[in-house]
Design a protein around this nucleic acid. Structure first.
Lengths: 220, 220
DNA sequence: AAATAAGTTTAGACAAACCTAAATTAATTA
DNA sequence: TAATTAATTTAGGTTTGTCTAAACTTATTT
């Protein structure tokens, strides 16, 4: 079956909300999609008849097995394009999301598989999110928050949950981006701040609050 | 201003029809776009208020200067994506059109300019059609029909006007594609057929009819 | 267990982009 | 030039995806 851009955006949004909670509500989806609750209800009825979501009025909804598969396909497209934009076209990692948002709806399977091959089958996008393979399989990236990292272990920045400007500012200022390798040198117990060291740079400190928003994985 | 996918398709179609004739009619556009004449009229009214076309009922229409500029931008996107698909993703040149048809509507200027740079500022797409530059300027490709080529001059295949299956068949069979370098060795006056030689291949003949449909340009 | 608040759905409208069928205009021919 | 034909436009309808405002459920308080 073939889906409209709008339907695809709904599926993707439900998928993301489901990561946290198993059942998704009208209002939460409306907030995420910048739409009115009434519009959500309309679309849920439609997606229900298409067997994409389980839905009973007033009881929230979740993707069916089929819906999940389709959502993973959309996310695959999104993340491969993000990787392309960042790696090949040299966009900065904060610019890629919006453009990928459009490109992801071009739905030729062959295009995406060839793009995947051209990019060398990357497993993570520039934000550190895993890219589903052509069967929709996702590699779990054992991530942990920077705030949880043991001292003197080299870790790689692979996700930032807060994309607000102050956060981006702070990252840029300290030269942190996707793929940055760093170590936690000290943990100050009085205010829980961390001293961070990036190779060949002066150390600096970040608050625990900020460190919670930066995910890393082990690596050299 | 921002345009819908549909508006963009209309502009592009008018642009193409204008290449032959200066003024375009409802029926011709309807045929090209696979739409009903009534739909064309609706859209022309809309594009007129947006100052994209000159239009007086029953008198046909043509793009305004502004409309022309926009159309060139769309064609630029289309042809850059075609080039990308063929050159980087290794699609065959007959597969690229339909996919580019979708990609062309992703309208970030920055995306297209970066893509252009990534591709090395190509000047012709895989069908041999010129790619407008970032200002909309088109390089005129001094093309001529294969049937007009002087003997023993190396030329490069850069356009095929007939995309029917028999033609594609014939091209494939003789190993002719975009960019193929060849020479005309003999012209048989009794039936006007041509003997063609591609480097490191046995010579073969093609009829004058076929040779008229293959455009080439000079080059080594 | 009512009453209230919060969340959700229904009813009805609207714009975009199509369509069909009927009416109109322009072009052609007798 | 009047009649016929071909092309175009108008009128009105459909689908998709959105919206607002009102009605209805469910959850939470008192």
């Amino acid at each position: 079956m073939n889906f409209s851009t709008s339907e695809e955006n709904y599926m993707k949004a439900i998928f993301h909300l489901q990561q946290e909670n198993s059942t998704v509500t009208t209002n939460r989806l409306a907030a995420l999609l910048n739409a009115r609750p009434a519009s959500i209800t309309d679309m849920m009825k439609k997606l229900k008849t298409k067997k994409i979501v389980h839905y009973r009025p007033y009881r929230g909804f979740r993707l069916t097995t089929e819906g999940n598969k389709i959502a993973l396909g959309i996310i695959r497209r999104h993340r491969l394009w993000e990787y392309f934009l960042s790696e090949k076209l040299k966009f900065t990692w904060d610019e890629v999301h919006d453009i990928a948002e459009d490109l992801e709806h071009v739905s030729s399977k062959k295009l995406i598989d060839k793009l995947d091959a051209f990019l060398g089958y990357p497993r993570f996008d520039p934000h550190g999110d895993p890219i589903p393979d052509h069967q929709g399989k996702i590699e779990k990236n054992r991530q942990l928050a920077l705030s949880e990292v043991p001292l003197n272990k080299t870790v790689i920045v692979c996700h930032v949950s807060d994309q607000s400007s102050p956060m981006l500012e702070l990252m840029k200022h300290n030269n942190i981006h996707m793929g940055t390798r760093l170590e936690v040198k000290k943990k100050f117990s009085f205010d829980q701040s961390l001293e961070i060291k990036i190779r060949q740079q002066a150390p600096f400190t970040v608050s625990n609050q900020v460190a919670k928003k930066i995910s890393v994985k082990y690596g050299t």
